[in-house]
Design a protein around this nucleic acid. Structure first.
Lengths: 234, 234
DNA sequence: AGATATTTTGAATGAGCATTCAGCAAGGAT
DNA sequence: ATCCTTGCTGAATGCTCATTCAAAATATCT
C-alpha cells in the first residue's frame, strides 16, 4: 500500500511536513543527537499506534509502521532493536500518558471526594485520551495481554493505582454519606463500567463518546446519589 | 512444542481419550459421515479456543490447533478450507453459545422485570460461560474486531439483542419504580459494567469470578434499589 | 575542507506459516 | 476379494515478514 512512500523524494516531503508541525522541537533537535533520537522514537511510536488502530495487532508489520512514519524499512530495528521492543515502548507510552492524565485531573479537583471522582470520570472520556485510534490500540494490546506477561504487567500497572484511588474515594464517600456498599466491590464496579464503555466505543457499534460519557454519568449519579448529580458533584 | 504428538501412535492415544469422554456421540458417529464431520469440526473449534487462550490471536497457528486436537497438519484446511474460516466458525460458536445461555436464563426467569435482570446478571457469571479459556478467546477476538468487519459483525450481533433486552428491562423498572434515569443510558452502563468485569477477569489481576459477581450485584443493587437487594430481586 | 561519527537506506537472508496435493487408510458396497 | 468413497496425512511449495548489514547520506568535529 501507498507505494508513493517508497520513493525517497516523496518521503522527504512527508518528513518536512511533519517537521513543520513541530517547528520548535525541530530547532532544538538540529543540535544534540539525543533529542533527535527521542523525536524519531516518538514518531515511530505514533506510527505504531496508527497501524495498530488501522490493522490490528496481528496485522501490524514493521513495514507498515515505517511507511506510516515515512521512513525506510530498517529504521525500527535501528531505533528499537526489535519489533517486540517497539510494541512494548508503545504500550509504555500510552500507559504513561493515561496515568499522567488522570493524576493531573485528580490534583486539579481538590480535596473533596465527590469532586475527585467526578474528575476521574470526565478525564476518562476526555478528547485527548479517548480517541478512536488510541482506544483501538489499547484494545489490540488487551487482546494479547493474557498470553504476554510483559503486556499484562504494563496494562495491570495502569489499573492498580487507578483502582486503589477509586477504592479510597468510595470509602470516603461511604463515610460521608451513609451508603451501605462494600468499597472494594463498588470500586471494581465503577472501574469496570468505565473500561466497559471504552470497549464499547472501540467496537464501533453506534456508541459515541457523548453516549458513553452520558452513561457513565448516569451510573455514578445513581450509585452516589447523595454526592453527585447529573450536572456535577453536589 | 509437544513433539510427542507428531508421532501417529501418540496421536491415536489422544484421539481415543477424547473419544472416551463422549462415548455416546462416538457411537452415533460410527455410522453416518455427516455426524462425524460435525464432531470433527467441533473438536477443532475447541482446540482453537484452547490455542487462542494459551497463545493469543497473533500466535495461534494451524499447527498448534492441529496438535491440540491430536490431528495432522492438513486437517483444518480439509474441514474449514482456511484459517480464517476456522476462526469465524469459532467466534460464531461462542456467540451462539452465549446467546443461547442468556436467552434461556431469561425464559426461566418469568415475567417480572426485576427477576429477568437478576437472571441476566447471574447468567453472565455462570461457570459454563465464564471460563478463563473462553474469556481469553473472547478478548482475543475483541482485539482484532475493530479491523475486521466479519468479527465486528459477530461480536456486535451478540450485543445488539442483549442490549435491547436490557433497555426494555430498564424501561420497565423505571415505569414500575419511579427512577429518573434515561433507560438507554442506564442500559448502556449496565452492559458496560458486565463487559468490563469480564475484561478484568481475563486480564488476570487478582479479580475472581466471585469478586466480579459481587461487584456486579453491588452495582445493580445500587442502581435499582427499589427492585433488587443483595440476595436477589425483591 | 577533510576526517570521523551517526543516522538512514534497501536489498539480502532466513524463519515461520498457511495452503496444496499426491498418496495412504479404513469402511462399505458389489 | 476388489473397488470406490471418504477421511486423513505430512512433505513440498511459496509467501510474508523480522532481522541483518554493507553502503550511502548526513551531521559533527578538528
Amino acid at each position: 500500500m501507498n507505494e508513493t512512500l517508497r520513493d525517497p523524494k516523496m518521503r522527504m516531503a512527508v518528513k518536512m511536513r511533519a517537521g513543520a508541525a513541530q517547528k520548535v522541537v525541530t530547532e532544538v533537535e538540529k543540535k544534540g543527537r539525543k533529542a533527535s533520537k527521542e523525536t524519531r522514537r516518538q514518531q515511530l511510536i505514533e506510527a505504531t499506534i496508527d497501524s495498530l488502530a488501522k490493522r490490528g495487532y496481528a496485522e501490524t508489520t514493521l513495514a507498515d509502521v515505517a511507511d506510516g512514519a515515512g521512513l525506510s524499512r530498517g529504521i525500527v530495528n535501528f531505533h528499537f532493536e526489535s519489533k517486540e521492543n517497539l510494541l512494548i515502548a508503545t504500550l509504555q507510552y500510552m500507559a504513561d500518558e493515561y496515568a499522567n492524565h488522570w493524576s493531573s485531573a485528580l490534583e486539579k479537583a481538590g480535596d473533596r471526594a465527590a469532586n475527585r471522582l467526578w474528575a476521574l470520570v470526565l478525564a476518562d472520556f476526555d478528547r485527548k485520551i479517548c480517541t478512536k485510534r488510541k482506544l483501538a490500540a489499547w484494545c489490540a494490546f488487551w487482546g494479547e495481554a493474557k498470553s504476554r506477561p510483559t503486556y499484562q504487567a504494563l496494562c495491570g500497572a495502569r489499573d492498580v493505582k487507578y483502582q486503589e484511588t477509586v477504592i479510597s474515594l468510595c470509602a470516603a464517600l461511604k463515610e460521608e454519606g451513609g451508603y451501605s456498599y462494600a468499597p472494594e466491590a463498588m470500586a471494581l464496579a465503577v472501574c469496570a463500567t468505565l473500561e466497559g464503555l471504552w470497549l464499547r466505543l472501540m467496537m464501533g457499534d453506534g456508541t459515541t463518546r457523548e453516549n458513553a460519557l452520558a452513561a457513565a454519568i448516569e451510573a455514578i449519579v445513581a450509585l452516589f446519589p447523595m454526592h453527585i448529580a447529573r450536572n456535577g458533584p453536589k
